[in-house]
Amino acid sequence: MSTVESVTPSGAAVVRRPRRVRLLWFLVCLGLIAVLIVASIAVGTRFVPVPTILDALGGADDTLDQAVIRVRIPRTVLALLAGAALAVSGAVFQGVTRNPLADPGILGINMGASLAVVVGLAYFGLSNPNSYIWAAIAGAAISAVFVYAIGSLGRGGPTPLKLALAGAATSAALVSFVTAVILPRNDIAENVQSWQIGGVGGATFERIWQVLPFLGAGLAVCLLSARSLNSLALGDDVAAGLGERVAIARGLASLGAVMLCGATTAICGPIGFVGLVVPHGCRLLVGPDHRWLLPFSALTGAGLLLAADVIGRIVARPGEIDVGIITAFVGAPFFIYIVRRQKVRAL
């Protein structure tokens, strides 16, 4: 551990956290998530005491409480998975575009996935969830390319603010289309809202299993690109000088990120701002090295989304607030803070 620090030049030591600090944060995050998981299973319209939870995990399901728990467990798992996927995809988008405002929600990528699923349901008779997921990933990819193309037109290439503006406009446009597609279709319109605001209620293990391979593959691609993201952070020229094939590295990392947010949107609906907040927070904890940043974002994102879901169930008892509403309400001020922090020159 000490060798790492002695080798690094003194200037870099400030940015690069010692491994011990990172491990400490890692354990803290794990502990918090464990607490949140218990809270998520215990808290809700009906409060379940902890011993009953342990019994239920042992396989008992005779009482009402244990039946409640069996509904809450998949929900908890889905919140963890979705949070991790969105946070990692946000971190990768921030790395690929070198843009502090990047987030699959703000860039309109989640809404693209949402529109693709809705169009598939309404016009192409998609019925099995596997085809949803493919449609969502395709929609996410198309909107990502579209937003990037619009945002990088003109002088200065894709500046953070131009990309964010293009993303927000695309997102607003896609919301209108989603409404227009759903409205005439009573068969799929039973919940217009769930395709505009995401939530994790109504999760089942069956659907989680279907999406798991996509999330796994996306996560693997992202983690494998961590090293190239580190080079890309130095700028395209330096990265190419270091032997990185810039276009391929960027494409691959984006593909992984698109798979993650597309697959998540296919089962949860569009959830914004998780991918914005989490990587910024994690950078403060573990520094900008993507090899640490990505796993940490996954962990923290899982915790954050689970926390948002639990809060949504506590605040509005006996009802509940969709997790997408909570993340927007908490994440938007953070977005404003980052916009304000940008130099006037970049505007």
Partner: peptide
Amino acid sequence: ILIGIGIAAM
């Protein structure tokens, strides 16, 4: 405009 978009999201 961007700050307005953030507020609009809230």
